[in-house]
Design a protein around this nucleic acid. Structure first.
Lengths: 103, 103
DNA sequence: TTGATGTATAAACATCTGTTCATATATTGC
DNA sequence: GCAATATATGAACAGATGTTTATACATCAA
């Protein structure tokens, strides 16, 4: 893997590496969600949600579509959705181990 | 997905979301690597590599094993290796699209 | 047009993070 | 023991990041 490829892939991971953003993306796994729905789902302020959504759509991790007063977000058809689904299936497997802590 | 699960998964993504750390992990995909090898491979300072390795092993993304004067790092047998391999296989697919930029 | 609702943006700020520099801790060979 | 090599740690700091507050923009109904 070249440094450029690493930076590109890391950028995706970095965006998913924030709990609120990860929740926003996973909420959209089952279909389009309006900003209001997303705001209620993750329990953050509307402004914060909007800021995070901006980053996610800039990186094309989410797509935006307006319908009347609402704006809906969903995942474009890409491997990120598949990867996330796979990760979530295996999320409990490593819970048996004690969480690692920095000395 | 619960907020706790999101935080846990996000923590893994966050660690992989830094180019140097991602390179360190991918370098170890094909087998154990010494700190010296890793340092040369990613072209960073020894100190920086060591700092990053500390974070990665604290999160159990990498395992540490000393052999004489050298310390070798490798991936524990977990789904992270599989995920990374899958992601790297598909890394070029989304390159056709223009990179998203914040206005 | 006005008000109401939904969403986005800008500024400001405290905290977090990556990095460097210096130094400490192993481990081996002499 | 000492020197040399390999790795880890601590302090310090600039820059990035997540969040809040306030405000702007968009859409629809009356």
């Amino acid at each position: 893997m070249t440094p450029d490829q690493a930076s590109e892939l890391a950028e995706t991971f970095r965006l998913l590496g924030e709990p609120n953003r990860l929740l926003l993306v996973t909420e959209c796994l089952d279909g389009p969600r309006s900003v209001t729905e997303l705001t209620e789902a993750i329990g953050a302020s509307q402004s914060l949600v909007s800021h995070h959504l901006r980053l996610l759509r800039a990186a094309r991790l989410l797509r935006q579509r307006r319908d009347g007063k609402n704006v809906f977000y969903d995942l474009p058809d890409c491997h990120v959705a598949t990867m996330l689904t796979n990760m979530m299936e295996h999320i409990d497997e490593s819970d048996n181990e004690t969480e690692g802590l920095i000395k």
